[in-house]
Design a protein around this nucleic acid. Structure first.
Length: 647
RNA sequence: GCCGAUGUAGCUCAGAGGUAGAGCGUUUCCUUGGUAAGGAAGAGGUCACGGGUUCAAUUCCCGUCAUUGGCUCCA
């Protein structure tokens, strides 16, 4: 007999060789029906795999990440079986579960596949899953594994087997399909009730751009048809919120082929929105002791050689422009830090002056690969809400915490209340990717980890994700429909101050090296506005909306009164258009609602006579009639309540 | 940059080897209206660009550019 410990601490004594599904059954029928996979002492485990020793057991259902992953991974195998049936000779790379669904990388021997082929693959998958195929685990020797895939002619699997140790190789089979796989899998394919293939894309074998590109098919599956429907609705909702679509509809920004790829142009309404954000941030930064500066859009090549950026990115950036006579070379500014270092360097600072916080909405230009460009989130010219803090080493932690507080304040004011953070450290195996001494890296990494701990941030640590000059703390916000976006970043840097030979005078009259913090709460104005659009679906909070209202005169006779109302509100920086069209009021209301204007003001005979306006809020909420002055107060109150200043 | 898809009116899209169509928008006129689409008429397109095949190409083929789904990258 062996002892099984359950997550709640309770124990069960069962006979040796029992399985997780048997234990689930002994707990409840319902659990047995819903359980998808298990873990034994932390190792994921098939439900029908025997347990040989005292163990702690966890059972995973669809409500657990592990359960979903197992479910999707099994669906990937079903897809592979369908593909093998439909395209004999197809070779398989890897086919894992991902955050939402699964994919399988396949080699079709030069044949291409498009989304039009999905229907028939899905049908075959549905047919297979309804056959109640059982997933079976089999331990094989390395030799057996080799022979199987050699006979089958699948060089990818052979390559995978080469990296595995003899003794931990397993095959899983279902129906007519056998795959090299660590598992675990669900017991039977019948649980997979809803399947949808989503898209097809190229993907390099082992993520290496020098190696063969395989065809990757993405899909998702669910235990219930209804859940698939919900998921597809979510995708549709995401599509509706797409900032590229809303940006066009609301005339916020545009691109032009003639101007160039990835170079956004802000239209008047988008500019109003962006300037309001900048104003908000400038005020917050002023309160936090930042000093605004403005630096040029280009910088001498020498500057970037000194900073190390040239070495790292020189070849892969926009190439330098030259002066016609002297042949001096200048780069479009790809970041603001070297300029800010030079600003710090031109004055002598005492230890009492630090920290010095230099802030700039600095527009930078980076050559992004053409395939990388995407709406406003990935562009070649953008404006960072950048600042560089030069601090004494003893101030680092406190100052880092100050920055975290500022970022959190800004997120909160903008309605991003859910977020995660990631600490990005360097890849210790590949130190050549980074500049600076081990000691500096150690100090910088420790400072970030300590500050994050002190602020009790929910963090994950990622190795190899640091910038080349220092580690960073990145903020990932969750938007209204649960998607995550990376926004702000805070980075600690001991290296640039060294490269620029920056110094301050200590209390002992000796020179010391400051430490630098790079930080950008939004990241870039472009990216942030994109995220904001998708978060609020274009229904901006009143204080950011490019226009707060539209005035609808009932007929031509009331145009003058409409203009009078508009002039009054304009004095209080409350702006909006007047709908002069010879349309019915119903029509004007509809159009105003569709264009997401926060307030609709209706003026007609009654309003003129009583010197009032009738107000309707976006979404069909009738606020009735009021004095213009009352409306002004209402708007100002609402704006005040939306910006949650912390003092 | 790589693989796949796409490119037709201001916008959203349909279409076919014989030089184009819808809805919305826009313009003009009629209607002067009270809480989600009033009516009529008109304007608007080298069918992304450059080659090729063909009697004939916007349609088929090739290339370029751009957009797009991914991969790789992201100071």
């Amino acid at each position: 007999m062996i002892k099984i410990t359950l997550p709640d601490g309770s124990t069960k004594t069962v006979s040796k060789g029992t399985t997780a599904i048997e234990i689930a059954k002994s707990i409840s029928e319902g659990l047995a029906r819903n359980v998808l996979c298990a873990s034994i002492n932390g190792e994921t485990w098939d439900l029908n795999r025997s347990i040989q020793q005292d163990s702690s057991l966890k059972l995973y259902t669809w409500n657990d990440k592990e359960g979903k992953k197992c479910f999707w991974h099994s669906t990937a195998h079903i897809m592979a079986e369908a593909l093998e049936y439909l395209y004999p000779g197809v070779k398989f790379g890897i086919g894992p579960a991902i955050e939402n669904g699964f994919y399988y990388d396949i080699d079709l021997n030069g044949k291409t596949l498009s989304s039009e082929d999905f229907t028939k693959i899905e049908e075959k998958m549905k047919e297979l899953s309804s056959k109640k195929l059982i997933f079976e685990r089999k331990k094989v020797s390395k030799k057996e594994a080799f022979n199987y895939f050699k006979t089958k002619g699948d060089e990818y699997k052979i390559e995978l087997i080469q990296d595995l140790n003899d003794g931990d190789i397993t095959f899983y089979s279902q129906g007519n399909f056998i795959d090299l796989c660590k598992g675990p899998h669900i017991q039977s394919s019948e649980k997979i009730k809803a399947i949808k293939l989503l898209n097809v894309a190229g993907a390099y074998w082992k993520g290496d751009e020098k190696r063969k590109q395989l065809t990757r098919i993405y899909g998702i599956s669910f235990p219930k048809q209804k859940e698939l429907k919900n998921y597809l609705n979510l995708l549709q909702e995401a599509k509706k919120r797409d900032h590229r679509k809303i940006g066009k509809e609301m005339e916020l920004f545009t691109f032009s082929q003639r101007v160039g790829q990835g170079l956004p142009m802000w239209l008047p309404k988008g500019t109003r929105l962006r300037e309001k954000l900048e104003k908000f941030l400038k005020e917050a930064q002023e309160d936090a002791g930042y000093l605004p500066v403005i630096t040029p859009h280009i910088g001498n090549k020498q500057l970037y050689i000194q900073s190390g950026h040239y070495d790292k990115y020189g070849e892969d950036s926009f190439q330098p422009i030259k002066t016609p006579n002297e042949g001096e070379e200048f780069f479009l500014k790809p970041m603001n830090c070297p300029h800010h270092c030079e600003i710090f360097a031109q004055k002598q600072y005492s230890y009492k002056d630090l920290p010095v916080r230099i802030a700039e909405f600095g527009t930078v230009y980076r050559y992004e690969q053409s395939g990388e460009l995407h709406g406003l989130t990935r562009v070649r010219g953008f404006t960072q809400d950048d600042a560089h803090i030069f601090a004494r080493p003893d101030q680092l932690k406190e100052e880092f915490i100050n920055v975290i507080d500022l970022v959190l304040f800004i997120f909160n004011a903008l309605g991003f209340t859910k977020f995660k953070t990631q600490i990005s450290l360097r890849d210790k195996e590949k130190k050549e990717k980074y500049i600076g001494s081990d000691e500096n890296w150690k100090k910088a990494e420790e400072a970030i980890i300590e500050a994050a701990n002190e602020k009790k941030l929910d963090t994950v640590i990622e190795y190899g994700e640091a910038a080349f000059y220092g580690p960073k703390l990145d903020f990932m916000v969750k938007d209204a429909i649960g998607r995550e976006w990376q926004l702000g970043t805070i980075q600690v840097d001991y290296n640039l101050p060294e490269r620029f030979n920056l110094e301050y005078v200590g209390s002992d009259n000796k020179k010391y090296r400051p430490v630098m913090i790079h930080r950008a709460p939004f990241g870039s104005m472009e990216r942030f506005v994109a995220v904001l659009i998708e978060h609020c679906s274009g229904n901006f909070p009143l204080w950011l909306a490019p226009e707060q209202y539209i005035i609808l005169p009932i007929s031509e006779k009331f145009h003058d009164y409409a203009e009078k109302v508009s002039r009054f509100l304009k004095k209080y920086d409350i702006c909006g258009p007047i709908d002069y069209r010879a349309e019915t009021t119903g029509r004007k209301i509809r159009d105003a609602e569709v264009s997401k204007l926060p307030y609709i003001i209706i003026v007609g005979e009654k309003e003129v006579k009583e010197n009032i306006i009738t107000v309707r809020k976006h979404g069909g909420i009738d606020l009735g009639s009021m004095k213009i002055n009352e409306f002004k107060d209402l708007i100002q109150e609402e704006i005040k309540s939306l910006i949650k200043f912390n003092n």
